[in-house]
């Protein structure tokens, strides 16, 4: 038998251990905000590419133009993704140093697997559809698969990530109804939502 305070300490240590062993606490909310900013920049770049005034010369090779536009848009999307991942990693590294935890452990490996399965299958699926000329499907599909990836990984992350995942899926379904307004939905889903949820998480966990 132990004194009662020892049991309270036991419970305290269990609570913290269970959370630390499951959740990847090094994720910084600020990296979400920056990912949103990159998405906004990428979206405005995409906007100018898509809606730039057509010159009389463009009229003849409309087909070729469409293909180069698609490639440029894919390039922008990949650029936004890579910049966001790099920022997320760099900021997680900084935060984990501050917290005195390791960034590469069982939890982060699990997180990576949980995140990449839906993300990669969705990414490949979208690329195949794009190659077959189904351009309009890209935005709803990317929002829905991204939302599914977040929900799948949310067990290892803060609770807010799960809500972000649900929001992305709902947005993706709505954008499937309003085909043709893809860029606006994409901008909202990857830009605005990241900034909003990033700020919430930053306020809650980083300060």
């Amino acid at each position: 038998m132990k004194p009662n305070t020892a049991y309270e300490e036991d419970i305290q240590s269990i609570r913290s251990l269970m959370e630390r062993s499951v959740k990847f606490l090094s994720l910084s909310g600020l990296s979400g905000v920056l990912a949103g900013v990159y998405a906004l920049l990428g979206a405005s770049l995409a906007y100018t590419i898509i809606y730039q005034p057509a010159t009389p010369f463009d009229y003849h090779d409309q087909g070729i133009k469409e293909i180069t536009i698609t490639y440029r848009l894919i390039l922008i999307a990949v650029g936004v993704l890579v910049a966001s991942l790099a920022t997320g990693y760099a900021m997680a590294l900084r935060k984990s140093k501050k917290l005195g935890t390791k960034i590469w452990d069982t939890t982060s490996k699990r997180l990576l697997i949980n995140l990449s399965v839906p993300l990669l299958s969705g990414g490949i699926f979208i690329l195949i559809l794009l190659m077959q000329g189904y351009y309009l499907i890209a935005v709803p599909a990317s929002l829905i698969f991204y939302g599914l990836a977040l929900i799948n990984a949310s067990a290892n992350l803060f609770d807010e990530v799960r809500y972000l995942g649900y929001t992305e899926i709902i947005l993706g379904l709505i954008s499937a109804v309003f085909m043709g307004y893809g860029l606006y939905f994409w901008t909202f889903g990857f830009g605005v939502l990241h900034i909003v949820y990033g700020l919430v998480m930053y306020k809650k966990y980083d300060q």
């Binding site: 240590s13 251990l17 269970m18 062993s21 499951v22 452990d105 069982t106």
Partner: peptide, 20 residues
């Protein structure tokens, strides 16, 4: 502590437990 970590996770290996 060991049992609580294992209850929260599917499985855990020796080195990860040691570190945690």
């Amino acid at each position: 502590q060991i049992v609580s970590v294992l209850s929260a996770n599917e499985s855990y290996d020796f080195n990860a437990l040691k570190e945690l």
